Computed example of a mutant assay.
Amino acid sequence: MPKNSVFINGFESVCCAGESCEELFEAICTHQSGIKTFSEFISDKQIALGKIEKPFSIEALLGLTCKKVLEQSNLENFENTLLVVGSSVGGMQTTESIFLRDHHYKNINPKLHAIDTIAHILSQKFSLKDDISFSTACTSSANALGYAYEMIAKGVYENVLVVGFDTLSLTTIRGFDALGVLSSRPCQPFDVNRDGMNVAEGIAVLLLQHQPQKESIELMGVGYSSDAHHMAHPSPDGAGALCAMQKALKCANVESCDVGYINAHGTGTTANDASEANAIEALFGSSVNVSSTKSITGHTLGAAGALEAIICVMALQKQMIPPNTHLVEPENKTLNFVKVAKAHTFRYALSNSLAFGGNNTSLLFGLPQ
């Protein structure tokens, strides 16, 4: 079957660092972190989180963000558009709020709890042809983008709307606290003094199509791997991340020396950053610009893959390398960590998403030929 090209023709985001993708990219390049300290989530403890300050529900914000992307598209209707959602917690926060208010389950709607809650909400707002939801922890929306890539490349669909979404769930926050990986300050990915991550909420929406438009960026390759080293820790040598990156490059028929920027998963945890740095060094050495943008956005969990895909797309469009914020002393002395935003001519950008259970996904983006 002939392989179609896959283009990103529209996108928008909302997170703690900006109400739009333009605000987000500006915040990243000027080191304006959206992370703040909160004391109400865990008793007698302050933690730093990425919370969207919103006057109305995040579900309403989700609908508005999708509407903006769809209305700016070249589509007259969305009846031939597949919806692919990536989320780590689905409607868990809604369930939590009802249970904590009522102290029983009778008013909980199961349709607003499951992972496909987001698809259920959006299907009521837009006449999309069909939907599918992915929940693979922190690779959820990266895998949603990978699935969208395959659907368009194989000619199954011409239009796919990808949504990455996660909200601050008490269950999630306390789960990461139990693992001992939450920081009380904005995280410092790859720094020797890093002490943990910042859980965050976010919305990222991308429209993928088989025909390019003005300023389109191509999704050129996808790579998956599962190292299964440990349920919550990656293989120290970075074998899983290395394999995913190699597969993404092979899928796109691109050499490692041609990649100009890597948006690293870079959570700020000891285990993740060391492992990922080893993987990047093994494949790229010091030849590629590297940054993690989670010190600005926090870790938006299931939404992170889609949010950081948007960051890569904008970096390519603007020919600007996003910097690492709060990186003072890199643990890895080989990698080319960018500390200040810089103009740079490059054609390819790679985005890594690494999740529990050794679930790894790499996405390669490029300027269309």
Rank of each mutant, 00 (worst) to 15 (best):
N278T: 07
K36D: 04
H265S: 09
N4M: 07
N198C: 11
Q72K: 14
G358E: 02
V313T: 14
A271C: 05
A142E: 02
N360M: 09
S20V: 02
A153E: 10
K106L: 11
K3Q: 13
M314G: 00
A153F: 01
K125S: 14
H299T: 07
G260E: 12
D131H: 15
A148P: 03
H265I: 05
E40H: 15
Y157Q: 11
T94F: 04
Q32I: 02
M320E: 07
S291R: 10
C21A: 12
A119V: 06
I321P: 06
L350S: 08
A277G: 07
H210A: 13
A153M: 03
G180H: 10
I262H: 09
D102K: 14
T117F: 14
I296M: 12
S351H: 06
N74T: 07
Q209E: 15
L327E: 06
S123R: 11
V162H: 05
V254G: 04
I280C: 04
E281S: 13
P322D: 05
I108N: 06
A309E: 06
D237Y: 03
L61E: 12
K214A: 13
N143Y: 00
T172F: 01
Q319W: 03
S13P: 00
K54D: 06
K333V: 08
A114W: 00
S127I: 09
C29D: 06
C312D: 01
Q246Y: 02
G86I: 04
K339M: 08
V156K: 13
A315D: 03
T167N: 12
M245W: 05
L62I: 10
H120F: 15
T325I: 01
E150A: 11
F165Q: 00
C187I: 04
A303W: 05
H104M: 01
I115P: 02
V254T: 12
V290Q: 03
G366D: 10
S351C: 14
S225P: 04
G302M: 03
Q317H: 05
H326E: 11
F346L: 02
C66N: 05
H265V: 04
T81C: 15
H299Y: 02
H230Y: 08
L367P: 00
G90A: 05
P330L: 08
M1D: 01
S73M: 02
I132Q: 08
D258K: 13
C243A: 14
F165C: 11
C187N: 15
A309L: 03
L75D: 01
C257A: 13
T267A: 08
M245Y: 04
V160A: 03
I28W: 01
C312E: 00
A142N: 02
T81Q: 05
E308A: 09
A60T: 14
G146V: 03
F356P: 04
D258M: 11
P323W: 05
T361I: 10
L219A: 04
M231T: 12
C251F: 13
N193D: 15
S133Q: 09
H344K: 11
E40K: 13
M231V: 15
V338E: 06
L128T: 03
A114Y: 12
G285S: 08
E59S: 11
P323T: 02
I152Y: 05
I311V: 15
T37Y: 00
F56W: 04
S43V: 07
F365W: 15
I321K: 06
G196W: 09
N4D: 02
A153S: 14
L354S: 13
G366E: 06
H210Q: 12
V205D: 00
C29Q: 04
P323L: 09
T334D: 01
V222Y: 12
L182T: 10
F176M: 07
